[in-house]
């Protein structure tokens, strides 16, 4: 059955967005990512204009992350305090990122920098997570450890430096003690990159929480979703208000799948161990990296595209 999308100005078989929503929502509930890096290109592939695809995706992520945050909150996996500081940092970083884009566009190098940042970030994060979680899984296997431990704060120079920062506070839910500045600074760093790349930044925020803030993986997923929810509310509003590119009907079709997918993902996530979750996410990130590298090197079938967005 086909439905006409009033803002995208195209008609689509409703099974496509519902199916895509289900698949990406599942990943969202499992790993705490919004899934924009998967959903937006898929929507474009099915004939949705790129600007509408990106804006509408943020709208449906609001639904999926509400559903996912709620599911994780119910099982005690959302660190609201940490999420709030990350949000503050992310918001400030986002403002800087938008300015950076303006400067890049003025110099005419925007697209190159955006694509390169994207590929490098995905590649580095994916490879690091893959190697680290593989090593961690092997170690656990050797020890015959039944319960996998999450990475613990090593007493390294970096660790000592973090402990010496002012405004130390305990994050009860995550079971870690950090300076308040830490989530704000790293949230800001992700915010800058996310704004430059035009993505939600979940795939960057998750490694920051795991490897720098040393939070347990399950709390990372819930907290990341909480943070993504607020980011996407802001982005949806701005896109609807300034660009008029949110397609409500497409968003509803997507969220029919993604809200259910996020719930199923959360259930599955509980059955998987932290390192298993990390390694699967690492593989997905690496597959997307390879796909983008192919897109960048193979001659595209069409050399023209609709204007707007990136």
């Amino acid at each position: 059955m086909y439905l006409y999308l009033p803002v995208a100005l195209t008609s689509i078989n409703i099974l496509i967005p519902i199916g895509l929503g289900l698949a990406v929502g599942l990943l969202s509930g499992l790993f705490g990512v919004g899934g924009g890096f998967l959903m937006t290109p898929l929507l474009i592939m099915f004939g949705i204009p790129s600007t509408v695809a990106a804006a509408t995706d943020s709208n449906q992520i609001v639904a999926a992350s509400t559903s996912g945050t709620y599911a994780h909150w119910k099982v005690g996996n959302v660190d609201f305090k940490m999420g709030l500081y990350l949000l503050v940092g992310g918001f400030i970083g986002g403002l800087f990122g938008v300015q950076a884009i303006k400067v890049l566009k003025a110099t005419g190098n925007a697209d190159f920098v955006i694509k390169m940042t994207y590929v490098l970030m995905l590649g580095i994060v994916g490879t690091y997570m893959f190697i680290e979680s593989l090593a961690s899984m092997r170690k656990a296997k050797k020890k015959g450890d039944v319960k996998l431990t999450e990475p613990t704060q090593k007493d390294s120079a970096f660790g000592r430096f973090l402990k010496s920062l002012p405004l130390q506070t305990h994050f009860e839910k995550s079971g870690v003690t950090h300076s308040l500045l830490l989530p704000v600074i790293f949230g800001g760093f992700v915010g800058v990159l996310a704004a430059i790349m035009g993505v939600g930044g979940g795939f960057l925020m998750v490694p920051v929480m795991v490897y720098i803030l040393r939070m347990p993986m399950h709390v990372v997923v819930g907290t990341s979703l909480f943070q993504i929810l607020f980011n996407c509310i802001e982005v949806t509003f701005l896109q609807a208000y300034t660009n008029h590119t949110v397609d409500f009907i497409l968003a509803v079709l997507l969220l029919l799948g993604s809200t259910v997918g996020a719930q199923i993902g959360t259930v599955f996530g509980r059955k998987l161990k932290g390192d298993q979750l990390k390694i699967i996410l690492a593989v997905i990130v690496l597959v997307v990296t390879v796909k983008i590298v192919f897109e960048l090197t193979l001659t595209p079938s069409l050399l023209l595209a609709q204007g707007g967005g990136h």
């Binding site: 639904a63 509400t66 949110v246 968003a251």
Partner: peptide, 29 residues
């Protein structure tokens, strides 16, 4: 645009909670 954006956001949050509540009945901590 502003009203449209707010409606889209509220509908998405509502749908997210709605589905969460439906699934929540069968789940638990």
């Amino acid at each position: 645009g502003a009203l449209y954006g707010i409606i889209s956001i509220v509908a998405a949050i509502g749908a997210g909670f709605g589905v969460g509540l439906i699934f929540g009945k069968g789940g638990g901590a």
